[in-house]
Simulated assay, not measured.
Amino acid sequence: MSDGTPSLGGVGLSAAAERLYRAMLADPLAPPAGLVAGAGVAGPEYPALLAELNAHGLVGSTEGRMSAVDPRIGLGALVRERQSGLDLATQAITGLVAAFTEGQLRADPARLAEVVDGPERVAAAMASIVGEATTEVAVFDAPPYVDKKTSEHAETSLLDRGVRSRAIYAVAALEVPGYYDAVRAMIAAGETARVVPTVPLKLVVVDGRRALLPLAINDGVVRSAILVHPSALAEALAALFESVWDTGLPIPGELEEVAEPLDADERELLRLLNAGVKDEAIARRLGVSSRTLSRRVTRLLERLGAATRFQAGLQASRRGWL
């Protein structure tokens, strides 16, 4: 209202009807003429304004005359009704945006995705979509690699901003010299990681609605990539990540201390076995022969009472070793 009093226009009430309602609340026994005068409305307007208040549930008949309904009841119900309508409208926004996006894509298919050519442009596109991430960056990770240090720096920046980071590594990634230590460092920094035998493609999904797929990597340089804009295609790529994530094995960070602590080699062996790294790569990393590695694995299985490596992983998890 003009005098600074909070208005009821937000619940669909006209200014004149609101003044009449306030007059009725202030003087429940006032006759119609007094209410008209108190509300500052013309006499002929009174029946229509009373009907408006009645339609909003703000007046009712009491002993043959119309009187104001308690605001806690009348206005409370009106506000809840309006809020329910707003909630439904808010829910409709998602569908409307999807329809709008679909229409835009039909009108101009180039909006769906674009090919980014040239190392500089690819790097700029990656920096742009990752820099705009607000909730999560999800990655399929596999060799060959372009610049591990730059990638690690970008991920650390994400985690510092509170953006969730999830990565699915191909086993081959953990066999690259020095890369397993880099992965462990990122897990310690806050990344959640899993490992699978192979990933279907190299991929970065941002907030479940945008994606970047390297197309050509030559001599350690990404020559081209596809940038996927918000669309059903981007959502499908996000769903692909989730489906592979469900099949992956968690890559643990530091092992917890136990009553009978493992030595350093045993702890490392458990981590590598759980990650699915091949025996040849494990032996190379630990600096032992294949025969020595086989004996160490056998001792671990016996200690854990496991018949298979999978059972060993389960037992180690139960004992807090993974």
Score class of each variant (00 low, 15 high):
Ala138Phe: 08
Arg309Asn: 05
Glu152Trp: 13
Ala189Thr: 06
Arg303Ile: 02
Val176Leu: 01
Thr94Leu: 13
Glu254Thr: 15
Ala312Arg: 01
Ser67Ile: 00
Ala123Val: 02
Arg223Ile: 08
Thr150Lys: 04
Leu270Phe: 04
Met1Trp: 14
Gly208Phe: 03
Gly4Thr: 01
Arg184His: 14
Ala16Thr: 07
Arg184Thr: 09
Leu255Ala: 15
Ala306Glu: 05
Leu78Arg: 14
Asn218Glu: 01
Met186Arg: 05
Ala98His: 14
Met66Ile: 13
Ala142Asn: 09
Thr156Asn: 13
Leu262Glu: 13
Ala124His: 08
Val204Lys: 06
Arg72Asp: 11
Thr298Asn: 05
Ala42Asp: 11
Arg223Phe: 01
Arg22Glu: 08
Glu242Ile: 10
Ala26Ser: 05
Arg210Asp: 06
Tyr179Ile: 02
Ala68Tyr: 12
Ala193Pro: 05
Ser294Cys: 00
Glu102Tyr: 08
Met24Pro: 00
Met126Ile: 10
Pro119Tyr: 08
Leu237Trp: 07
Thr247Ile: 11
Tyr46Val: 10
Gly43Tyr: 09
Ile93Trp: 15
Val130Asp: 04
Glu266Pro: 01
Ala225Val: 00
Lys202Ser: 12
Phe241Tyr: 15
Arg184Glu: 06
Tyr169Lys: 04
Ser151Lys: 05
Ala48Glu: 12
Arg210Phe: 02
Tyr21Met: 10
Gly220Cys: 08
Thr101Ser: 12
Lys149Gln: 12
Glu254Asp: 15
Thr150Gly: 06
Thr150Ser: 12
Ser231Gln: 02
Val139Cys: 05
Met126Gln: 11
Arg80Trp: 01
Glu45Val: 15
Leu49Tyr: 08
Ala16Asp: 12
Gln91His: 10
Leu233Cys: 06
Thr150Asp: 09
Gly276Asn: 11
Ala30Glu: 07
Met24Gln: 01
Gly85Trp: 04
Val195Gln: 03
Glu136Tyr: 04
Gly178Asp: 07
Met126Ser: 06
Val130Lys: 11
Leu75Thr: 01
Glu63Phe: 13
Arg164Phe: 09
Ile282Phe: 14
Gly10Ala: 13
Glu266Val: 04
Met126Asp: 05
Val146Met: 00
Leu212Asn: 00
Leu301Asn: 10
Leu158Glu: 10
Asp246Cys: 12
Ser289His: 05
His229Ser: 09
Arg166Ile: 02
Ser151Met: 04
Leu322Asp: 01
Ala316Thr: 00
Thr192Tyr: 01
Ala185Val: 12
Thr308Pro: 08
Val139Met: 09
Phe241Asp: 04
Leu215Asp: 03
Pro109Asp: 06
Ser317Lys: 07
Gln315Trp: 04
Leu112Phe: 09
Arg291Ile: 05
Val228Gln: 07
Gln83Leu: 15
Glu155Leu: 07
Gly253Pro: 14
Arg295Gly: 00
Leu75Asp: 04
Gly253Met: 03
Ala89Met: 12
Gly131Trp: 10
Leu105Ala: 13
Leu86His: 07
Leu53Gly: 09
Arg209Gly: 10
Ser67Asp: 03
Ser2Val: 14
Lys148Tyr: 03
